[in-house]
Write a protein that binds this DNA or RNA. Structure first.
Length: 487
RNA sequence: GCCCUCAUCGUCUAGGGGCCCAGGACGCUGGCCUUUCAAGCCGGUAACAGGGGUUCGAAUCCCCUUGGGGGCACCA
């Protein structure tokens, strides 16, 4: 198996899903997973893209047996370092009558296509140079035009191959044109390079996205012309954006690394991506990487394109976050908190403190990136909030202030400031004051956290600690007083 | 325009002739639990694109239509 990305951009979830399916297939059957870099488009190569590819694979722990950084017996694994191989194959094809030099200028080709389109004909090369004699060709060559090498596609006949997912697929050769093998800059096209490399790297199965299905007959023809046995092909359904079109930047977060930044766990991504185009049975949603490897086969791959469903991804990530050990969650959350908490919060954060807070947000966070927003009141000196939030229906500021005052005094006397002590104490206090627990607890929640929706009150207070709580309650009473005077 | 391909709830999917007046999950939604928010539990909503065949019997097989997707570069 191989994953053969081109460093022309950051790999998106579809690219990585393809990589992962190849990896899964290799691991399931005990095969080898090869990583090959297809950098034959010099103009479109993006700096940093290669690193992003490796980083994406590493993040999901998709290790490659051969390829950049690890080597292997069939390298080099970067196409720009294999140019002689492609030239050799191309020259052989020309020599044996399967390919020819084409001297047509890009301008001519463009004009030709424009006219074809205007006549509602399929745009394709008109084969002008196909019939050039050797003499004519060398004449042109000496005149300084650098030719490309084109494949001499059979004019008639059918090309049939078996796709492991779709079954037999047939193309009429008459609908294919004479595609370019070698570009004038000396680099091969994808068609040429991938065939030469897949053959020489002993690739047995080519699993790639469906967008390649229509160029597969060209590949089959090329294999035949070179006298090589083609690999097995399997074309994966595409992953589409919410508008049902090919995934692109327009669809928001698409590059895999963006999901890491957004606080998704790698185990979530592996599980979720596996389910995009593959399924185990009629009910299993949550699978570990080991379980996926164990049961991954082609039979369960679907043929229909899938739309990336972010809501379900978030749900799944929440499930994985909740399954984490507190220590693990703490370690994973700290970088996000340090990134996202207000600038005023001193770094580095205390790991012990985060350790106390982590369990309180574990049930509530769907992504690690939500951690800061769910817990910022634990870190800021004083939370700022609308004093009206301290109030409840049918209870005036005076009553709340009074209740908070009494609470404050009781809390001062408490020796161990923990949930076990706080809960019974505050419950009986509410009864004593003749207040509904919801009213008292609500006011205390707002006072201590600055918000109406927060983790369970007593645990929150325990984590905050006595000093912080007392100070915040005092501030709340103060706020209520000012609210009264403003009236 | 031409070629290829696909077609089950809004989305991801199970289903490969009777087990399906179609199952699971996300979402949405009703209830329970509850100091808020979550989480959890119980329930509900919602689909076989349409039309012809084949068959005792079709979501499942065949054909057509429609619709979606992809391709048609000196990009991969």
């Amino acid at each position: 198996m191989r994953y053969a990305p081109s460093p022309t951009g950051y790999p998106h979830v579809g690219n990585i899903r393809t990589a992962m399916f190849n990896w899964l297939f290799a691991r399931h059957y005990g095969g080898r997973f090869v990583l090959r870099i297809e950098d034959t488009d010099v103009a479109r190569t993006v700096p940093g893209a290669l690193e992003a590819i490796l980083e994406s694979l590493r993040w999901l722990n998709l290790d490659w047996d051969e390829g950049p950084e690890v080597g292997g017996g069939y390298g080099p694994y970067v196409q720009s370092q294999r140019l002689p191989l492609y030239h050799e194959a191309a020259e052989r094809l020309v020599r044996e009558g399967h390919a020819y030099y084409c001297f047509c200028s890009p301008e001519r080709l463009e004009q030709m296509r424009a006219e074809q389109t205007k006549r509602k004909e399929p745009p394709r090369y008109d084969r002008l140079c196909r019939c050039l004699t050797t003499d004519q060709a060398s004449d042109k060559a000496t005149s300084g035009v650098i030719p490309v090498v084109r494949f001499k596609t059979p004019l008639e006949g059918l090309t049939t191959f078996t796709d492991l997912i779709r079954g037999e697929v047939t193309f009429d050769n008459a609908t294919l044109d004479d595609f370019v093998l070698l570009k004038s800059d000396g680099y091969p096209t994808y068609h040429m390079a991938s065939i030469v490399d897949d053959h020489s790297m002993l690739i047995s199965h080519v699993m790639r996205a469906e967008e390649w299905l229509s160029s597969t007959p060209r590949h089959v023809l090329l294999y035949r012309a070179l006298g090589w046995e083609p690999p097995q092909f399997a074309h994966l359904p595409m992953i589409l954006g919410p508008d049902r079109s090919k995934l692109s930047k327009r669809h928001g977060a698409t590059s895999l690394i963006e999901y890491r930044e957004a606080g998704f766990l790698p185990e979530t991504m592996v599980n979720f991506l596996a389910l995009l185009g593959w399924s185990l049975d009629d009910k299993t949603e949550l699978l570990s990487r080991e379980e996926i490897v164990k049961s991954f086969t082609l039979e369960h791959i679907s043929k229909t394109p899938a739309i990336f469903n972010r809501e379900k991804l978030e749900w799944m990530n929440g499930v994985y976050i909740r399954s984490l050990k507190v220590e693990d969650l703490t370690n994973r959350i700290i970088p996000f908190l340090e990134r996202d908490l207000p600038p005023g919060v001193p770094r580095p954060l205390s790991r012990d403190y985060v350790l106390k807070i982590a369990p309180l947000i574990q049930e509530r966070a769907r992504t690690l990136a939500e951690a800061a927003q769910l817990s910022d009141f634990f870190f800021v000196v004083e939370p700022h909030y609308d004093p009206a939030l301290l109030l409840s229906k049918n209870t005036g500021p005076d009553d709340i202030a009074n209740a908070l005052h009494i609470t404050l005094e009781r809390l001062r006397t408490i020796e161990s400031f923990d949930t076990a002590r706080l809960e019974p104490m505050l419950r009986s206090l509410a009864a004593e004051l003749g207040m509904k627990t919801g009213v008292l607890f609500g006011a205390l929640r707002t006072a201590t956290t600055g918000r109406t929706a927060a983790p369970p009150l007593f645990q929150t207070m325990e984590a905050l600690g006595k000093d912080r709580c007392l100070r915040r309650i005092e501030a709340a009473i103060d706020l209520l007083g000012r609210l009264e005077r403003a009236k």
